[in-house]
Every structure is written in structure tokens, then in C-alpha cells.
Write a protein that binds this DNA or RNA. Structure first.
Lengths: 149, 149
DNA sequence: CCTTCAATGTTGGTGCGACCAACAATAGAG
DNA sequence: CTCTATTGTTGGTCGCACCAACATTGAAGG
């Protein structure tokens, strides 16, 4: 790193800077990997929720995946076009839809799982397993604080 | 957290999810704070670099702040309009500009410093000092790996 | 000297993720 | 039966990161 590339201390000192900058790298790795599978982050989140909790309404998907329900609309549209999910009206409820995973969607999910596993290793690179676990634990703790409050 | 809001394990297990989600909270806190000062993240980065390293070309600012040079143009335009920075042509170099901080810009920087200090506390909330230091250390280590490679 | 290469500022885009307001249709509570 | 909450949907906004292209200029090498 040349002298011209020194980062201001005001930035490097701050946890929020470290977080956001590391997330830049994380997101680049993830989106590159997903792009090769023709997908985006929202797709993975929704496929994962469908797989783990079964068919659900779009509102529930949004809550579980931390995605705004208006964005769920677009994502489910795309997943449906790609044949990874199907949207059917809820018979017991006029307005609500039931979204469910297709076989093909399950395969796509597993493809994306593999991509993500690789990304985690690239991201945490040379960090020993023990410290990696510590990092994950601390991040989870802090995140939990914000999820409830 | 109700049963309908359970987050898929595929997500919560992954470091990249924890990072990106925590960064969502961090960025919300930061941008709220900055918005009250009529500023954005790019402004702070550039003001910080100007303060710590003195007047610089836009290209140097971009490298130091991890901002694309095309985005530096817009940010410096805004900072100049607000009277926080001034752009003058480099006498020794036809095309290059020299951007420097104004008195008013220094004050704005200090205002934003205070905002950010508050944000760090809100962000890391109940995390004890020791673990906060551990988190910062680990994040810094991982980030450094990506900055060189 | 002249040519080639690299750097600079600038314009004008793109993509993703996170959000917000509003609306019609429907369900559920009182 | 009325009021309120929920759902799906449309159509935006914003910030950050990034890219391609271009003219201008400086620096380096033959």
C-alpha cells in the first residue's frame, strides 16, 4: 500500500467502517458467485425460507427474510419466471398468495448453497477456525441486540 | 420474535449474512445521523482525508477513501457548493485539481465525528469493551487480507 | 523529437439492496 | 356492521459501488 493510498484514521478506527468495508468485499464475492447462477441475494433468501419453512405468503417471506414486501413481489415474479417457485392464490384467503418451492428451485438453492460456502472461505480467508467462530459469535450477539430492539 | 419471523438457518449461520445484516443497521444509524447534518458517507470520507493528509487531487482522494473517482467528482461538487471544500487547478499540472478543506469544512467534519462516535456506541450497544476490541481486531485482520490481495 | 502509455477529471450510465407512500381488496375484531 | 389491520401491488427514492468512454495532459522510451 503506497503512501498515497493511506486510509484516514478516522475511518479505520471505527467499527462501522470496518463492518461496511468488509461487507463491500462480502457482497462482491456473493454477487459475483450468484451472478454466475443467474441469481441475486433476494432470490437466495426467499428460496431458503421456502425450503426451511415450507410454502408461505409473500408477507411472511418478507418478514422472515428481512425483505420489504414490495421487493418480495419482484423477487417472486422472477423466481416464478425461472420456474424456481410457484405462486397460487390462498383458497382460505381472498387476497393472500401461497408461494411454494419447485423441484427446480430446490436444485437452484443447493447450487447457491455451494457458491456461498465457497464465499465464506474466501471471505474469512486466513482466519483460523477458532477466531472465525469468535467473530461469528460476536457478530451474532450484536445483531441480535438490534433485531429485538 | 414470533414464529412467523424466524430467519432461515442457511442465512443466520453464514458470516456473510451476519456481516451484511449488521451493516444494514450500521448504515441506517450512520445515514440518519449524517442526514441531520445534511451530509452523506462520501462527504465524511473525503473531509477526513483532506483533514488528515492535507490538500489532494481527486484521484488521490478516491484511492484513500475507497471511492471511485467518478463519484469523487460529485461529492467534491457538493462539498464545494456547501463551502466545505474548494477545488483549484494544480498550477504544476494542467488537468489535475487540488482540493482543500475550508474552515467551515473542518467544523462540519467535527460535527460528523460526534455523530459517528454516538453511532458506534449505539451499534455495539451492550457489547463489553473487551469483546468490542476483539471484534474490531478481527474485523481489521480480515479486512486487511482483502485490501492487499 | 515524436510516439506511446498512463493518469486525470468528467459524463453518463448500471446494479443491488433498503426503504417509503399509496391504493384496492380482504379479513378479523369490536 | 363498522373500524382496523393485513396483503399484494405499483411506482417511486436514496446510497453505495462500479463501469465504459472520452478529451486532456504528463511522463517515459525509442
Amino acid at each position: 500500500m503506497s503512501a498515497m493510498d493511506e486510509i484516514p484514521r478516522r475511518l479505520t478506527e471505527k467499527p462501522s467502517w470496518l463492518l461496511t468495508q468488509l461487507t463491500v468485499h462480502a457482497r462482491r464475492l456473493v454477487s459475483q458467485g450468484f451472478a454466475e447462477a443467474g441469481a441475486r441475494g433476494y432470490h437466495y433468501r426467499i428460496l431458503a425460507a421456502l425450503d426451511e419453512f415450507g410454502p408461505a405468503s409473500q408477507a411472511d417471506l418478507g418478514r422472515r427474510c428481512r425483505v420489504d414486501r414490495s421487493d418480495v413481489v419482484a423477487a417472486v415474479n422472477q423466481l416464478a419466471e425461472l420456474g424456481y417457485a410457484e405462486r397460487t392464490p390462498d383458497p382460505d384467503h381472498g387476497r393472500r398468495n401461497i408461494v411454494h418451492l419447485t423441484k427446480s428451485g430446490g436444485r437452484q438453492l443447493r447450487r447457491m448453497d455451494k457458491v456461498l460456502d465457497g464465499v465464506q472461505d474466501e471471505l474469512l480467508g486466513a482466519l483460523p477456525a477458532e477466531e472465525r467462530a469468535t467473530l461469528v459469535r460476536l457478530l451474532g450477539r450484536v445483531l441480535a441486540e438490534h433485531e429485538v430492539g
